[in-house]
Write a protein that binds this DNA or RNA. Structure first.
Lengths: 187, 187, 187, 187
DNA sequence: TATGAATGAGTGTTCATTCAT
DNA sequence: CATGAATGAACACTCATTCAT
C-alpha cells in the first residue's frame, strides 16, 4: 500500500507538480481516505523525500558499479555513465522529473541529506574525466568542473524532451551524445 | 508600477516558486494592496505570462541579430549563440529560472503562444548546425536534432549551477563549452 | 494496565489538557497501540470519568471520616476539612487540576452523576458551619452559603498556585487559612 | 466587525471552551465566512490574546484608581478592591471565565506579556494588606503572601458559581466576603 | 488608481473510533 | 489481549479573486 501510494505520488507529482497535487488527489487515485495516507507518511514532504532518496540512491549504486569496473578504460566508463543516466531518465522519467523539479519543496534539514548525494553524482562523473586525463585519454587542458557541468547538462536536460515511448532509444541517444562529447561536431 | 510589480514577481517566483508566491507577497513587497494588483493584471497567471513573453521575445530578438550577420561563419555564429544564451541566463537568471521551471502553470491556451516561440529558439540553433554542415564546417554525419538538444542542455542546465556573482564569467564558460562542442574532449 | 493508563492519562490531561491530549499520546507513553486503549475504555471520555469519580469519591470518603468524628468541635472539624482538601490538592494535584478544569468535557449524562457529588462536598462544609453556629462556635449572622463558597474558593484556588514541591507544606497553609477564616485579618 | 467577532468569541469560548470552539462556529454566529475572520485576526490564538489583554488591562486600570485614592483607609481599599473584582466577574463573567480557564492556550511568547500583568493584580492586593499592617489596621503576624492567595481564591473562585442573573448582587456578596476576611467567622 | 472588506473553495493535518486478525 | 490498518469528520489556515467605494 505504501508502495502503491509512492507510485501514484510520483505520477501525480510529475504530471501536476508537487504543490498542485493534493493529498486528496493521491488518495482518490489509490482509492483510500486521507487518514490512510497519514498512517504511512507523516507528511506530504516525507513522500517527496522517499521519492528523492530512492531515485538518487539508485543512481549512485549504478555509478558505483561502473566506477569499480577495472575492465573498462575511461572512454568506456564515460559512455556507460552517460548511457546509464539517460536510461534512468528514460525508464524512471517520472521520478527523474520529480527529482529535478521539486527538490525545492524539501526542508533545509532534508536537503542536507540529499544535496551531498546529488553532488556525489557529479563528482563521480568528474572522477571519470580526471582518470581519463591521467591515462592520456582526454585533453590535459580540459576544465574538468565546467566540462562536467556541460555533460550533466546534456544528459539531465533530456528529461525536458526525451520521449520515453521509445522512438529513439536511450542507447542511440547515448551514442550520439558520447560521440559529440568525445570528438565534437567539427570536421 | 506595472513594471515594478513584474520585477518583484520575477524575484519572488524565482526564490519561492510560482505556487508558493501569493499575490499578497508581491503586494507586500511593492507596498500596495491586492486590489492594485488586479488593476494591472487580470490574474496571477497573466503576470507569469508577461514574464515568459518578455524573456522569450528578448531571446528570439538576439538570435535574429546573430543569424542575419553575414560576416560570421557557422562556428562563429554557434559561439555567439552559446554566449548569448549563457549571458542571458547570467544576467536575467531569475527570469530564466522562472521561464524554465514555471511554464507548467500557464494555461493550455497561453502555452500555444509560448511553445512555438520556445521551439523557434531550438530551431534557430538547428539552423546554425545545418548551415555549418552545408558549408563543410561541421560533420556531415551529425544527427542535428539530437545534437541540438545536447547543446541546449549544456546551456540551459547552467541555470541550475551558474553563479551569477561572476567568479567565472559567461564569456569564459562559453569558450569552454564551445570548445567542447566543436572538438570534443578526446585527445 | 488499566491503572497504568489512568495514571498516564491524569498526567497528560493535567499537563496538556483533555482536548490537547490524544489517545495516541497516552498509548505512546504507556507503550501500547490504540487498540489496547479501547479494550479497557469505551471512549476517551470514560477515562476522564474514571479520573473524576475516583477523585471525588476519595474526597467524600475523607469528609465522612471527619464529619462523623464526635471527639472534635466544629472549629476542629473545619480545620481538618480545610487541611484534608488542601492536602488532597497537594498530593493529587494532577487529579485535582483535571477535576476542576476538565469537567466540561463530560457528557450531560455523566455530569448528572458527578455534579451531585461535587455539591455534596460543598454541603458537607456547609454542615460544619451550621453545626458550629448551633453550638455557639460561629457567628449566628453568618450567610452560610456564601461563606462556604468563600472557604471553598480559598482552598480550591490553591491548585492554581500551590507548589507541591513542599516549600510551604499543606499543614502550614491550612493553619494560615483557618486562622484567617476564623478570626479574620483585622486587629 | 472585529468587535462583533471578539464578542462572539468570548461567548463561545466561555460556553464551549477554546479548543472546542472552531473558527467556523464563530463565523457562523457572526454570519460571515472564515476568510473574514482571518482578515481581522492572524490566528485563533490572537483573538484569545485580545480577550485576555482587554480583560486584564481593564482590571489593572480599576485597581490603579483604588490604590491612588488617598481618601480611603486600607479596610476601605480592600473592600473596594474585592467589590471591583467581584463586579468585574459579575459583569464580564464570560471574559473572566475565559481568562482563568484558557490561559494555557496562549503561546509562551504571549504568556510573557500576560503573566506579569496577572501577577501585578495579585501584588496590588498584597500592597493593600501591607499598607494596612503598617498603619495598624491589620494583624502584624499576617502571612501576606498566603493571605492574598486566600483572598484572591475567594474572589476568583466565584466565577465557578456566581450567578450573574443578579439574585444576589455583587455588592452583597462583597460585603459578606470582606466581613469574613476582616473579622472571620468565629464569635 | 487604489483600498478594504469579504468570499468560497481548497490545503495539509489530526484524531477518536472501528474492526478483522 | 493487543495490533495494524483504515475511516470520516473535523480543524486551522491560505489564497486568488471580486467589488463597492
Amino acid at each position: 500500500m505504501k508502495e502503491k501510494m509512492t507510485e501514484v505520488g510520483i505520477q501525480l507529482f510529475e504530471r501536476k507538480g508537487f504543490s498542485e497535487t493534493s493529498i486528496q488527489d493521491i488518495c482518490d487515485a489509490v482509492g483510500v481516505t486521507k487518514g490512510a495516507f497519514y498512517y504511512y507518511f507523516t507528511s506530504k514532504e516525507e513522500l517527496l523525500m522517499d521519492i528523492h532518496l530512492s531515485y538518487i540512491n539508485d543512481m549512485l549504486m549504478h555509478q558505483d558499479v561502473i566506477l569499480t569496473d577495472v575492465s573498462k578504460d575511461s572512454k568506456a566508463k564515460l559512455y556507460e555513465m552517460v548511457y546509464m543516466l539517460l536510461q534512468s531518465i528514460e525508464q524512471n522519467g517520472a521520478s527523474a522529473r520529480v527529482f529535478f523539479r521539486e527538490m525545492r519543496h524539501l526542508s533545509d534539514e532534508r536537503l542536507t541529506e540529499i544535496i551531498p548525494k546529488r553532488n556525489q553524482v557529479r563528482l563521480n562523473v568528474e572522477r571519470v574525466l580526471r582518470e581519463g586525463i591521467e591515462k592520456g585519454e582526454f585533453q590535459t587542458t580540459l576544465n574538468v568542473t565546467i566540462a562536467t557541468f556541460g555533460i550533466l547538462g546534456i544528459i539531465n536536460w533530456s528529461y525536458q524532451w526525451f520521449n520515453p515511448t521509445g522512438e529513439v532509444p536511450a542507447r542511440e541517444v547515448a551514442k550520439v551524445f558520447v560521440n559529440m562529447i568525445l570528438q565534437g561536431i567539427e570536421i
